[in-house]
C-alpha cells in the first residue's frame, strides 16, 4: 500500500494535471513549430509522471507500463518524427492563424471553465483521488481540438490531435484508473501508426501544394 498520505498524493496529481494544462496553453501561445513539438514532449512527460503517481497511489501495476510507453512513444519517438518532418519541410513557424494568439488564449480559458462546469455533475461519482483531473482532462481534449481547428499548418494540427489523445489518456487514468491493458496497448499502437501516417500525409501535401498550409486544400474542391 502507498506510504504517501492520500491527501498529499492528490495534491501531487492535481499539480501534475495542472502542469499538463499549462503546457497546452503554452502550445496555443507558441508560433514556432519546433517549440510546439518540444512542449508536446514535455506534456507527455508530465502525463507519464501523473500516470506513475496514480499507479503508485492505487497500486494498479499495469499503469506503470502505460507510463513507460507514454515516455517512450509520446515523449521520445513521436517528437522525433515530428521534428524530422518539420526539418524536412522547412516550415519553422505558423505565420497566419485563423484566431490570433490572445484571442485564442481567451477562448481556451473559456473552454477550461466550460469543461469544469460540464464535469461538475459527474465528478462526485468518480474516485476521490483523481476526480478533479477529469475536468482538466476534458479541458485538454477541448483545447487540443481547438488547436486543430485554429491552426493552418498540418504539423500543428497533428500536435493538436496528439494533445487531444493525451487528454483522453488522462481522463482514462483519472476516471477509471486506467483502461484494460490491451486497450491501452492498442491505443499506443494506433497513435504511433497515426504519427507515421500523418508524417507521410504532410509530406504528400507538401509535394502537391508546395506548402503544409491546409487552407490551400480548398483548391481540391475544383
Amino acid at each position: 500500500m502507498p506510504t504517501l498520505p492520500v491527501n498529499i498524493g492528490s495534491y501531487l496529481v492535481n499539480l501534475c494535471s495542472a502542469l499538463l494544462l499549462l503546457t497546452c496553453f503554452a502550445i496555443v501561445a507558441q508560433r514556432r513549430l519546433m517549440a510546439c513539438v518540444d512542449l508536446f514532449a514535455l506534456q507527455s512527460g508530465f502525463l507519464a509522471v501523473t500516470a506513475t503517481l496514480v499507479a503508485y497511489l492505487t497500486g494498479i501495476h499495469h499503469i506503470y507500463l502505460a507510463a513507460i510507453l507514454t515516455i517512450a512513444i509520446k515523449a521520445i519517438i513521436l517528437p522525433r518524427i515530428l521534428k524530422k518532418i518539420v526539418r524536412q519541410l522547412n516550415v519553422q513557424r505558423e505565420v497566419s492563424m485563423y484566431v490570433n494568439i490572445p484571442t485564442g488564449l481567451l477562448i481556451c480559458g473559456g473552454l477550461v471553465i466550460l469543461a469544469f462546469f460540464i464535469t461538475q455533475p459527474i465528478v462526485h461519482l468518480g474516485f476521490l483521488l483523481t476526480q478533479d483531473s477529469l475536468a482538466i482532462a476534458l479541458a485538454i481534449v477541448l483545447i487540443g481540438f481547438f488547436i486543430m481547428v485554429s491552426r493552418q499548418k498540418a504539423v500543428t494540427q497533428v500536435i493538436g490531435f496528439l494533445v487531444m489523445e493525451n487528454g483522453l489518456f488522462l481522463a482514462a487514468t483519472a476516471a477509471a484508473y486506467g483502461m484494460p491493458l490491451m486497450v491501452e496497448l492498442g491505443i499506443f499502437f494506433d497513435v504511433l501508426v497515426a504519427g507515421l501516417i500523418v508524417g507521410i500525409y504532410t509530406h504528400q501535401i507538401q509535394e502537391t501544394f508546395g506548402s503544409v498550409d491546409t487552407s490551400r486544400m480548398k483548391a481540391l474542391k475544383e
Binding site: F25, I101, L105, L106
Partner: peptide
C-alpha cells in the same frame, strides 16, 4: 500575447 497569457 505575453500579457494575454499572464491574464489567462
Amino acid at each position: 500575447e505575453l500579457l494575454g497569457a499572464a491574464f489567462i
